[in-house]
């Protein structure tokens, strides 16, 4: 492989990885605070996509549409928690999982009925398709923007979590929710905040996702939630930075397989990536970074 190709693939892997990392972190945020798997998380990406579709169709600039998409995803995330998950606060894991599953199906089918079951195009700015050339190196603009936005979002979130008292509250709740409550942290506020951050991350990832695909469909949330699930499991459940690591590991696996596999095996790239994940998990059932708490009883 030429060094040029290597650099290109490296940037591809990093940009894909930053999307996966955002998604995984959003999912892990809610999981670590509430112990629930939010299946409706993928639908936040869908909501971002459709808000952008409407606004771009109404002649708004792409950036405004993107910001609005992120805001709507954040609000939707908080709202979903209040409507669908708060009444089930004390319910077991499985019940919450199904509840979020049902929410996902409801949102998908509402979009199917109210908008259209068919794909809708979201025109992306022309600059996204351009390529920067440095001598013999060619680097796509979109992967660079994705990487930049992704890393910026992760950095801001890290600063928020590490430097502010709200961030401390979230980290404390993630470590041990009951003890955090005893220390005077308001449960409902922390949970709402976790869902807001989760929605925000889904929104940012959603914008990047739509910029890559250029279309929105009612079931477009399935692939993001799947990647997030897998990344979170690779990284170690209930561990925020493990989720980020898991996202990058998954992206590197996929891009590497895409390069290494012979053409006739290309359709199986995803299957091979998942097999690799299962192998990782066979040797490390707790994920790459196991949660630091003792086993929850």
């Amino acid at each position: 492989m030429t060094p040029e190709l290597l650099v290109q693939q490296l940037i591809n892997a990093l940009s894909l990885g930053s999307i996966y990392a955002l998604l995984a972190l959003g999912l892990a945020m809610v999981f670590s605070v509430l112990g629930m798997l939010n299946f409706a998380f993928g639908e936040l990406v869908t909501i971002t996509g459709y808000v952008m579709f409407w606004l771009v169709a109404a002649q708004t600039s792409f950036v405004t549409a993107a910001v609005a998409g992120v805001i709507f995803a954040t609000l939707a995330s908080v709202l979903i928690e209040q409507i669908a998950f708060r009444p089930l606060r004390r319910a077991p894991f499985v019940t919450l999982l199904f509840s979020s599953f049902a929410v996902a199906v409801i949102i998908q089918n509402l979009i199917r009925q109210l908008v259209s079951p068919r794909p809708k195009g979201v025109p992306v700015p022309g600059i996204f398709d351009e390529v920067w050339r440095f001598g013999t190196f060619q680097i796509g603009v979109l992967p660079m923007i994705t990487l930049g936005v992704g890393l910026a979002a992760l950095g801001l979130l890290a600063a928020f979590l590490q430097r502010t008292s709200w961030g401390l509250a979230i980290r404390a709740a993630a470590l041990d929710f009951e003890v955090a409550r005893l220390m005077g942290i308001r449960a409902n506020r922390v949970i709402s905040l976790a869902f807001a951050i989760s929605g925000l991350l889904a929104g940012v990832a959603g914008v990047l996702w739509v910029a890559r695909r250029g279309t929105v469909t009612p079931d477009m949330g399935f692939v993001p939630i799947l990647k997030a699930f897998i990344a979170v499991v690779i990284g170690g459940l209930g561990n925020l930075w493990g989720a980020v690591l898991g996202g990058f590991v998954l992206a590197f696996l996929e891009v590497t397989l895409d390069v290494v596999l012979p053409i006739e095996f290309r359709p199986y790239t995803e299957a091979f990536a998942l097999i690799a994940v299962v192998v990782i998990l066979y040797f490390r059932p707790q994920g790459l970074i196991a949660a630091q708490t003792a086993e929850r009883v």
């Binding site: 999981f31 894991f93 299957a271 998942l274 299962v278």
Partner: peptide, 24 residues
Amino acid sequence: ALARMQEQAMAMATLALLVMMHAI
């Protein structure tokens, strides 16, 4: 591989199984 995982991780990994078999 799956049976060795923690309950929640196993639930997620089964979703991966679905996608894998669908690809095949």
